[in-house]
Design a protein around this nucleic acid. Structure first.
Length: 558
RNA sequence: GCGCCUGUAGCUCAGGGGAUAGAGCAUCGGACUUCUAAUCCGAGUGUCGCAGGUUCGAUUCCUGCCAGGCGCGCCA
């Protein structure tokens, strides 16, 4: 249990005791005592912790909130860690504590290292996180980059919260788009020797297809000897494999590794689509109409029923996706989280219906919808047109602004917000760029520790120093921020809000820079110097940890 | 028409049933012979889109409306 939670519980039980004592003495009369909430106030002057219990109880007690608060405070046990209690505002009870409880935070960090803040909340739950899943027919875009950052960090957060997590990229290499891509590639191949060879009407115009055709020509100069159908089949397999390799390289450069790249074509090869259709048919959830086979998804709340086998005998996208999700479930995952782009929200209903049809509860599947990303340059939105080839890819973005800035910017905003990504700001090597601000805090501490070492000063452990010497306001603020990590990390994981960690990192860095402006370390007398060395080296551990969660480097010097 | 997201300071965005609604940027003024000035210290800024409702208390929850973005295929 975290230091902060333990301290809260201690105060809550003190409040319970006080309320019971007040009731026993007849000062307070209520049917039952509500659950007591305690929070860290936004304003420092409102104490270390505050409770609104008197406001909540006022009506039942038939007294003014402030009066209730006064009665509770009168019955609170005095002394111990509670330095002062006050009734404030409309009836808040504010607690001011002695600083001792904060020191346990440093001991916890020292003991646990970068595992500090982790917990076992999710123990026993197996979560599958599927994200990006961009079609292997073209370069990834900036929404894919956003999804990669959010998904990867969410996976790291869930693991830190004790969940067993698998990450997957679903490769849609068997559908319509893969066919179109194969025909585009084949046509470009033909055009290498016959400039007049027609390009498919709906083909992919990007230059990358022609470049791939060149590579293909070198690898398979004899391709045209094959019959057309076999040639297309080869192009489909070879081409999508190449695109997957490129996606893997882009994502690796971005710090994202998937546990599994799941091929749609494997589902087809295994007969998984037929199997899941049969399963649903036996449950009476399939019907034929207009020459097609339909899934009665409306039975599970979907807007309309969905075609599973088209009238031409081929499958729709959703058919393979149902088979894929069935596969996930059969592998023992108890929670499926999918991260999709904004154009897919209409797809949620049918997939939730499918999950229920397969015999699982609706909330087994959780879908996070990301919103669009607008790129800004010179304050203007960058217009993109796939057709005209004016298109900023994920690769372009990462090359232009770097992995750290790209990830940090995407993780700076809540996932469901529309995002303006300022390209000029992201590349700026200056104080305006928030990612540097956090990294700089880490580098500064590293520099101090480096110089301490050069001077022959070892970083002591908590037990070797007097932590009560840490009493400057900025030092206490830092200790409180460090104490807040466990709760913040769990909240970020449970609410699926990685941007909380970005904010935490910025706040921690800000408090450190402020401390650094007021307090010296190496120049101080040994006892204070040593206490501060303990403080900053533990701050560095936490900075490294949160940057690690964000997938951003923690440089030793800048 | 239906559904989803968004609307908070000049800009980009946090926050969230409770106390005086916050941060960064931009603007202005200070701080380097001392551990990295990519930093710090100080200063101004609000119809929380609009209107109702619930509540002791709403910017937060509910309903309606307005505005912007997106989606509603036998495409993926």
């Amino acid at each position: 249990m975290s230091v902060l939670v333990r301290q809260k519980q201690e105060l809550v039980s003190a409040l319970y005791t006080a309320i019971e004592a007040a009731m026993a003495s007849g000062k307070l009369e209520v049917e039952s005592v509500p659950e007591i909430g305690l929070e860290v106030p936004r304003e420092k002057q409102h104490g270390d912790f505050a409770s609104n219990i008197a406001l909540i109880m006022a009506r039942a007690a038939r007294k003014a909130p402030r009066e209730v608060a006064e009665i509770i405070v009168d019955h609170l046990p005095k002394g111990g860690v509670i330095r002062a209690v006050e009734v404030a505002g409309p009836g808040f009870i504010n607690f001011f504590l002695s600083n001792d409880w904060l020191h346990d935070t440093l001991r916890a960090i020292e003991e646990q290292g970068e595992a500090y803040g982790n917990c076992q909340h999710g123990a026993g739950e197996k979560v599958l996180l599927e994200f990006v899943s961009a079609n292997p027919v073209g370069p990834m875009n900036v929404v894919n980059a956003r999804a990669a950052a959010v998904g990867d960090t969410l996976a790291r957060l869930l693991r830190a919260a004790g969940y067993e997590v698998g990450t997957e990229f679903y490769v849609n290499d068997a559908g319509n788009q893969a066919d179109v891509f194969a025909r585009s590639l084949e046509a470009r191949y033909q055009q290498l020797t016959n400039a007049d060879y027609p390009f498919p009407e709906d083909g992919y115009p990007g230059a990358y297809v022609a470049e791939l055709a060149q590579v293909l020509k070198e690898e398979r100069p004899d391709l045209l000897d094959l019959p057309f159908d076999e040639r297309i089949a080869f192009c489909k397999r070879w081409g999508t494999d190449k695109m997957v390799e490129m996606q893997q390289a882009d994502l690796r450069a971005y710090g994202v590794e998937f546990d599994l790249w799941f091929r749609e074509r494997d589902l087809h090869a295994q007969g998984a689509l037929e199997a899941v259709i049969e399963f649903l048919r036996e449950k009476g959830l399939m019907f034929e109409e207009d020459g097609a086979l339909w899934f009665r998804s409306t039975q599970f709340g979907d807007d309309k029923d969905r075609v599973i086998v088209k009238s031409d005998g081929s499958y729709t996208y959703v058919t393979a996706d149902i088979a894929y999700h069935y596969d996930k479930l059969k592998r023992g995952f108890t929670k499926l989280i999918n991260i999709w782009g904004p154009d897919h929200h209409g797809y949620i209903g049918r997939m939730k219906a499918a999950i229920q049809a397969l015999g699982y509860s609706e909330d087994t599947l959780e879908v996070l919808i990301l919103q669009y990303v607008a790129l800004l340059r010179d304050g203007q939105q960058v217009k993109m047109s796939k057709r005209a080839g004016e298109f900023i890819t994920m690769q372009d973005l990462v090359e232009e602004v770097g992995k750290d800035a790209a990830r940090f910017f995407f993780l700076h905003r809540s996932p469901e917000s529309h995002l303006d990504f300022d390209l000029d700001l992201a590349v700026e090597q200056s104080n305006e760029n928030p990612v540097f601000y956090v990294q700089y805090a880490h580098a500064r501490i590293s520099s101090v520790l480096r110089q301490a070492k050069e001077q022959g000063i070892a970083v002591p452990t908590c037990s070797q120093v007097d932590l009560s010497l840490l009493e400057h306001e900025t030092e206490l603020d830092l200790l409180k921020q460090l104490a807040a990590l466990p709760e913040e990390l769990l909240a970020a994981a449970l609410l699926r809000e990685p941007h909380r960690i970005t904010r935490y990192a910025l706040d921690l860095a800000g408090l450190f820079h402020s401390f650094y402006g007021y307090c010296h370390i190496l120049g101080e007398e040994a006892p204070l110097r040593d206490a501060r060395l303990v403080l900053v080296s533990n701050i560095r551990v936490v900075l490294r940890k949160v940057l690690g969660l964000l997938g951003v480097d923690a440089p030793e010097q800048m």
